[in-house]
C-alpha cells in the first residue's frame, strides 16, 4: 500500500470540506464541513503514524477528535442562539456588526 493513497484521500476530503465551508450559508452545514476538514487531517495523522511506525499519529488523532467534539458543542450552542434570536440559521443574515 502506498502512503500517497491515504494522503490523496485526505486531500480530496479536505478540499470538499473547504468548498462546503465557503459555499454554505446554513450554520449547521458549515459546522459539518468543518468536521469533514478535521477528519481529513486525522486520516493524515494516522497514515503518517503507520508510515513511521510511531504511536504519536494515533494519539494526535485522538486529541483532534476530542477537540472536534468540544468545537461542535460550542458551535452548535452558538447556532442555536442565533436561531433563537433571529428565527433563522442563515449566517449571511447575522450581519449586525457590519458597518
Amino acid at each position: 500500500m502506498f502512503l500517497n493513497q491515504f494522503l490523496f484521500l485526505a486531500a480530496i476530503l479536505f478540499c470538499i470540506g473547504i468548498y462546503g465551508v465557503l459555499t454554505r450559508k446554513n450554520g449547521v452545514l458549515m459546522l459539518m464541513s468543518i468536521e469533514l476538514i478535521l477528519n481529513s487531517v486525522n486520516i493524515n495523522l494516522v497514515a503518517f503514524g503507520a508510515y513511521h511506525q510511531h504511536i504519536a499519529g494515533q494519539v494526535f488523532a485522538l486529541f483532534v477528535i476530542a477537540v472536534a467534539a468540544a468545537e461542535v458543542g460550542v458551535g452548535l450552542a452558538i447556532v442555536l442562539l442565533i436561531y433563537r434570536n433571529r428565527r433563522s440559521i442563515n449566517v449571511a443574515e447575522a450581519n449586525l456588526m457590519k458597518g
Binding site: 500500500m1 502506498f2 502512503l3 500517497n4 494522503l7 497514515a47 503507520a50 508510515y51 511506525q53
Partner: peptide, 8 residues
C-alpha cells in the same frame, strides 16, 4: 514528496 513511498 511521497511519489511512490510505500507503507512498511
Amino acid at each position: 514528496a511521497f511519489g511512490d513511498v510505500k507503507l512498511p
